[in-house]
Write a protein that binds this DNA or RNA. Structure first.
Length: 263
DNA sequence: CGATTATGATTAA
DNA sequence: TAATCCTAATCGC
């Protein structure tokens, strides 16, 4: 689930549910017992997302830093739902939230938050982010563009689904050297990131296909029809019907169409 | 019921 | 590049 849109959506939803009063915190699993006791019955002052990082501020020196990693989940639950013993952290406001399998769940001071965010590239979902910073991060990089897009110091919040889909949408071959992209392509890549991630937050889901290509009646999108290439190897391209390819880049799979995205 | 896999990232080798 | 961390859904037997 977790690319940047998921975290920004979480940030909003947690704000709605938890900023209203004191937060009740516990660690049913026990691995975050101390941290939970520190924030228990405190007010949440701020909830913010930077790329795939979530920060819940209780005080200058008490900020909950959460990163879901590959398998982490942070899900809303009815107040009466009994947490399983894998729930690292349970937060309770107007609803309960159960955090499982996070890569990071720690209390940090503001100083550490700044260290984390300083290492991130521009986040398409944050105001003030500039496409020029994204372009600057790619200059002189011979690394394949598909690898650069997963580098959080180049652009923050893109994951394996979005990178494959964006390159398809713009007809860019995944292995094009980053610095070979034209200014116009970089601008488009940034623009697509902004619009797609915003839509991802709105839908709480990644949907990149346009109605014209979905083969579905408008508004009635079947679960398997939301993406162009991700995890569709061997299936026909929704635009040209060629067989979708899969390539391993730096250990991660990347799907693409060799007709729509050059050879 | 065990193996596999996953929208991530760091560390070791 | 490989191993590692963390959880849960899915798949094959």
């Amino acid at each position: 689930m977790p690319e940047g849109h998921t975290i920004h959506r979480l940030s909003k939803d947690l704000r709605t549910d938890l900023v209203t009063g004191l937060v009740t915190a516990s660690s049913p699993q026990g691995r975050f017992e101390h941290g939970a006791s520190v924030i228990n019955q405190k007010s949440l002052l701020k909830s913010e997302a930077f790329g795939k990082h979530l920060f819940l501020t209780f005080s200058e020196e008490t900020i909950l830093h959460i990163h879901l990693g590959l398998i982490g989940k942070f899900r809303p639950q009815a107040l009466e739902t009994e947490p399983s013993d894998t729930v690292r952290l349970r937060l309770e406001g107007t609803r309960a939230w159960h955090l499982t399998g996070p890569q990071t769940c720690a209390l940090i001071p503001r100083e550490e938050l700044l260290r984390v965010t300083d290492d991130l590239g521009p986040d398409p979902l944050r105001r003030g982010s500039k496409w020029e910073d994204f372009a600057a991060g790619l200059a002189n990089r011979k690394t394949p563009i598909a690898i650069s897009l997963l580098d959080q110091s180049v652009i923050a919040g893109i994951g394996n689904v979005y990178r494959a889909e964006f390159l398809f949408l713009l007809g860019i071959h995944p292995e094009r050297p980053s610095s070979d992209l034209t200014q116009s392509e970089l601008k488009d890549l940034w623009a697509v990131s902004v619009s797609q991630l915003r839509q991802g937050v709105r839908l709480n889901r990644i949907v990149t296909v346009s109605n014209a290509d979905s083969g579905a009646t408008p508004g009635r999108l079947k679960p398997g029809d939301a993406l162009y290439v991700y995890k569709r190897e061997g299936q026909p391209c929704r635009r040209c019907a060629s067989s979708i390819k899969i390539t391993k880049l730096a250990g991660r799979s990347c799907w693409w169409c060799e007709t729509c995205q050059g050879q």
